[in-house]
């Protein structure tokens, strides 16, 4: 059975625990500071260009300036655009703490002006990656950089990872049949280059580096923003003790996560793996019991 610690719980060194020798490189990741994103989509384009990702269709979606809609098999970086008028409508009183329209309570304190949030989303390269846990072929693997990558020559398109991901990142590509997502530019990392999207980002909204250092930098940045009165600034995915053990790619947001299309409190499905098998065992046992019992009668 699974080594419990690897599926859930504190995990300081996912690469090491996946079998890489102790001298493997430090864990790499992204800190995406959405407070300085200008929505130029250079990251989206650079990713496609470098990774040879095909176009994702030519539909006007009408979601502000977002015409790719979401991350998916053919969109590995996705820039969200959120137009928010001011003043925000009064929150619906629900009598339940924290259950109102989240941004209305916490996202916009003191905000007087219309605002336009932009945020570049990407695979989170989770410490406990739901996609990786469930992949039955080994196509998904943990790299020496602690990132999570699909091997297209192995993937048989079983589709399990698609539902294993609590963020809705990985997806099977139509017509191709395999699952695709951000590789955190594994090839570039191996050559000592930074990922294409981070390289293209003009404002350093996407910062690439050693995860430990990024986490520190992010904490400083939040503090700085709070001092400047931007109290709604918060980190998402930076906490190594959250439901997925922290993200390799985490974010600074200016509103509640769900406003950007993130789940507010994701948990890796394998957290409950023992319970699940236990219940399955009980159900199986029940079946055996019943199936035996039925032969006890006559006829």
């Amino acid at each position: 059975m699974a080594d419990h610690d690897r599926v859930y719980g504190p995990e300081a060194d996912p690469a090491g625990d996946s079998g890489y020798a102790a001298d493997h490189p430090p864990r790499k990741g992204f800190f995406t500071d959405t407070s300085i994103c200008i929505g130029c989509k250079a990251c989206e384009v650079a990713c496609k260009q470098w990774n040879g990702v095909p176009d994702d269709g030519f539909d006007l979606l009408g979601l502000s300036y977002d015409n790719t809609g979401a991350l998916g098999a053919s969109t590995w970086r996705h820039v969200a655009f959120i137009e928010q008028p001011a003043p925000p409508p009064a929150p619906v009183e629900l009598g339940m703490p924290g259950m109102g329209p989240p941004g209305a309570e916490t996202g916009a304190e003191g905000r007087e002006q219309f605002r336009w949030l932009m945020s570049s989303d990407v695979c989170k390269h989770c410490t406990h990656a739901g996609c990786l846990d469930v992949c039955p072929t080994g196509a998904l693997f943990r790299t020496e950089f602690g990132t999570v990558v699909v091997q297209p020559d192995i993937c048989n398109g079983c589709g399990y990872c698609v539902s294993g991901c609590p963020y809705g990142v990985i997806q099977r590509r139509e017509g191709d049949g395999r699952a695709w997502k951000c590789t955190l530019c594994y090839d570039r990392l191996k050559d000592g280059l930074e990922p294409a999207c981070a390289h293209a980002c003009p404002t350093k909204s996407i910062q690439f580096g050693d995860l430990d250092e990024l986490r520190e930098r992010a904490a400083d940045r939040v503090e700085q923003l709070h001092e400047q009165g931007v109290t709604e600034a918060r980190l998402y995915g930076a906490d190594p003790d959250d439901g997925v053990g922290g993200n390799g790619a985490f974010f600074l947001l200016l509103d509640e996560p769900e406003v950007y299309g993130f789940p507010p409190d994701p948990v890796v499905p394998a957290r409950d793996i023992r319970r699940m098998w236990t219940f399955a065992g009980m159900a199986a046992a029940a079946l055996v019991t019943v199936a035996s019992a039925v032969f006890g009668g006559r006829g």
């Binding site: 260009q49 176009d55 269709g57 030519f58 006007l60 300036y65 790719t68």
Partner: peptide, 24 residues
């Protein structure tokens, strides 16, 4: 202008990666 396109479009409306970003 839009970030996603360039002027009269010769250099952007012929590229899928740019065209999909502002398709209409």
């Amino acid at each position: 202008r839009l970030t996603e396109h360039h002027t009269a479009g010769g250099m952007s409306r012929n590229l899928p990666f740019l065209s999909e970003l502002q398709p209409a």
